[in-house]
Design a protein around this nucleic acid. Structure first.
Lengths: 340, 340
DNA sequence: GTGAAAGCGCTAACAC
DNA sequence: GTGTTAGCGCTTTCAC
């Protein structure tokens, strides 16, 4: 019942050494003699002693905890990224403490207050909607804040993204080269930088070919909203012959509506392209042409920015974005098919 | 740069009260007068003070951290469950610290050592493969351990599952009633209790109708393994006319192989049923008849078991399992369709 | 290289 | 109801 904690003092007594000696044995890079180390380690093992990270944090000022703020986990992109991030941080001796932000549990403000209470060493924001003075307070207090898969206009935080604009442009070029004439777009959440950049790149790509968007709906990065958007777009008179949907999660919802409700054929009737390259995009049922997020490199960059802030005190914001390849699959007519 | 921490002492000085008065204001249920509370709160707000959860934990012996051990997040069931669990715990003032166990980062043993170091108040094991003396040490130290979606033979830990055996039986009855004669099974990871129970129930259900398994392969709850299993099962002479695949994650992999590689029609050529009811199962591309895991109730039970252990010291293992409904969709021939 | 002592930020008796 | 005091388990000077 009572959590019997074995302390460094217990080990010290049992081993007949001072408590600080025990501490030193468990402090990487402290000066301890061989015999001392062995004596202490052996008693520690016997007693099942482990240093208390929390007590340590009180004095070192580092908790070895990274707070992750996220608002949903149903878009497959996030769990996969979380898995990678968590692994990478674990490798460096950090762990991820999850904070769900969103309608269900408290607003963003509350969540951030909670985070601060845990004395996290760094914060990763993977959620799309969040803006608060508190975020600045984190930064002001010297806690590194890294935005994952989003940026912010004022560059006060580090931000790691893929090159959304370039991705959008690539998709436009691909659709234009595929001979499409009426090209639509289903937007993500309008407050998100990813949405804005993907659309900007896409429109720029169309413009470069002398084209314009033929139709536009908003899916807000939400599964159900995306269905509604697809219905509206393709039930219209003169519907698009190709559509860029701002992420795979929505694209999958939309494709199901298009094929099963509206009876459209993909890619014969309409081409679909999207963004993220979640695992599902490669499944034959969707076989989605999409821009891959270079998640591994993005995660590396997040960890780097975090550690630079924590361990070197280098909290100056860094904004990195990585170009991701276009994964050409079967959901959109390919350029060469048009060369008859 | 230097993390300037505002302490309760700072607030006390500024407000002209004792440090313990400040502490009491932030301790729910402590006796403080109205004016005192206001004075302290106002200074606290002004200074941006937040109690240090970690320092508090040192004295209370509670960290308000729940360790979650998980080995993969690509099976959509886990992220969705994690989201719910995290929300529920957050509501009670706890947060989830993630520990990834698995080939990539250290073995289970190491991970558990790390967990112990964080003085977590409770542990949830959502991973399938884990067995270690350390797990017992957690229990011995009075830390509540709850297995999520798995049980263990010796009942030393609390375990929350759906009624896998009943689910398996329901599926067998459904397939038998649907007039299927050659019924196959693709197993999950053989070390998992869910696998064992689902198969046992399924076999029992077949036996009750005087039937036996016609074919059996192992997919180990892995996407790629499941594809291989499906290929092997349906490339055989005299392949099954129905198959139960031990979870939706594998079923989706297998269905893609069956339809796109082997040219099978579902459900005309072969019926497919599975287990979990992940969101994807309801998508028209899969439209999978499956047993729903009553995740909400399972999460509630996990939280209950955890809190009983933490707050009431009641760590006696409780094993709960909830029956989940059969979600009848289009991937398997339905009984009434056979009544001609 | 090792021990003694101080103190991280906080809660929990204990007096008043 | 409020202040004083004593630690929680640990790291880190500082002597030796």
């Amino acid at each position: 019942m009572g959590r019997e904690i074995v302390t460094s003092m217990d080990v010290a007594r049992q081993a007949g050494v001072s408590q600080s000696a025990v501490s030193r044995v468990f402090t990487p890079g402290a000066s301890v003699s061989g015999p001392m180390r062995e004596k202490v380690m052996s008693v520690a093992r016997e007693l099942g002693y482990r240093p208390n990270v929390l007590a340590r944090s009180l004095i070192t000022g580092r908790s070895r905890i990274i707070g992750l703020v996220v608002s949903y986990l149903d878009n497959q992109y996030y769990p996969v990224a979380l898995e990678k991030l968590s692994h990478a941080l674990q490798e460096c001796g950090y762990h991820v403490l999850i904070f769900m932000a969103g309608p269900t549990s408290g607003d963003f403000e509350t969540v951030l207050e909670e985070i601060l209470g845990y004395q996290v060493d760094g914060i990763v924001m993977a959620s799309v909607s969040m803006s608060s003075d508190l975020t600045y307070r984190c930064a002001d207090e010297g806690i590194p804040v890294v935005l994952f898969n989003r940026t912010q206009d004022e560059g006060r935080f580090s931000a790691v993204t893929s090159d959304n604009e370039a991705g959008g442009r690539k998709l436009a070029e691909f659709l234009v080269a595929g001979g499409h004439r009426r090209i639509g777009y289903i937007a993500g959440w309008e407050g998100a930088s990813t949405q804005r950049d993907r659309e900007a790149g896409f429109r720029a790509g169309l413009a470069a070919a002398g084209r314009e968007l033929h139709a536009r709906e908003v899916g807000s990065y939400d599964f159900e909203q995306a269905k509604i958007a697809a219905r509206r777009m393709f039930a219209a008179a003169d519907p698009p012959d190709a559509v860029f949907i701002a992420n795979d999660h929505m694209a999958i919802a939309a494709m199901d509506v298009m094929r099963y409700e509206l009876g459209l054929k993909i890619p014969e009737g309409v081409s679909v392209v999207a963004y993220d390259d979640v695992p599902m995009a490669a499944w034959p049922s969707y076989d989605l042409t999409t821009v891959r997020q270079p998640t591994n490199r993005m995660v590396e960059a997040v960890v780097e920015a975090l550690l630079a802030g924590i361990e070197k005190g280098d909290t100056k914001p860094r904004r990195v974005s990585f170009a991701g390849p276009l994964m050409i699959r079967g959901s959109a007519r390919k350029p060469q098919e048009d060369h008859r």
